[in-house]
């Protein structure tokens, strides 16, 4: 790893998340992820993986503690700054979260349109990224016309279209068979090789069994980091 890669891009200090009335989803989490790292976040269902990711993309606020993202304390982010912070993060969900009445092209273009890019630039970048995830021939199709693996690839394409620094993947292979899961993983690995920090929450042991990536384990909201 180079020195550049050792710069912390995500820092969590003493983060807890409590849901009313008395559910403790995360407890005293201390986490340090460096730029360009690929981290698996594992644990059984209900262990707090999704909550941790939701805190990172500011869908929720911690009850206690502080999170720094690329050096910026999330507690100090104003509502008007939030969209710009989110553009640094690409999110991939288990249920894809694609717009069913929009084509593959339109779904992927959405994350570029919000940045203010216009026609020609969007078209070029979207085509490029869709080719890359292997869906070049299905650019005009709509999500219901695609297989689950293809839909997940569209979701990944949307997440990476505006070149985010971080990708948060929440059970990205949860709905896929083994070959499709491998395909998705290899796309994430490629992106990581280009310098994107990846946090992949999963309880699919097949993904991290090879053991060459850092694996964080969550049990009942408590993080055990090796």
């Amino acid at each position: 790893m180079t020195n550049l890669n050792k710069i912390a891009i995500i820092n969590m200090e003493g983060v807890s998340k409590r849901y009313l009335p008395d559910t403790l989803a995360l407890y005293d989490v201390h986490l340090h992820i460096t730029k360009g790292e690929f981290v698996f976040l594992t644990g059984p269902s209900g262990s707090g993986k999704t909550t941790l990711l939701r805190l990172l993309f500011c869908a929720e606020k911690p009850s206690v503690g502080e999170i720094w993202l690329d050096g910026m304390a999330l507690s100090s982010i104003t509502p008007s700054q939030l969209p710009y912070l989110r553009r640094k993060i690409g999110v991939v969900f288990q249920d894809f979260k694609l717009l069913e009445r929009h084509s593959v092209f339109e779904n992927v273009a959405l994350s570029l349109e919000v940045t203010g890019l216009t026609g020609g630039h969007i078209e070029k970048r979207v085509k490029q990224i869709i080719e890359r995830v292997g869906l070049g021939d299905k650019i005009k199709r709509f999500p219901p016309q695609l297989s689950e693996g293809e839909r997940q690839r569209v979701a990944i394409a949307r997440a990476v279209a505006n070149r985010p620094q971080i990708i948060l993947a929440d059970e990205p292979t949860g709905n896929l068979d083994r070959p499709r899961a491998k395909e998705v993983l290899s796309i994430l690995e490629e992106l990581n090789a280009e310098g994107t920090t990846i946090i992949c929450a999963t309880h699919d042991e097949r993904l991290y069994e090879r053991g060459y990536k850092r694996t964080l384990r969550l049990y009942d909201g408590i993080l055990n980091s090796p």
Binding site: S80, P83, Y84, V91, L99, S111, N162
Partner: peptide
């Protein structure tokens, strides 16, 4: 859902 996705990809108000 669409608005939620727009928020996720960094759309401004």
């Amino acid at each position: 859902e669409e608005i939620e996705i727009l928020h996720l990809v960094g759309a401004t108000r």
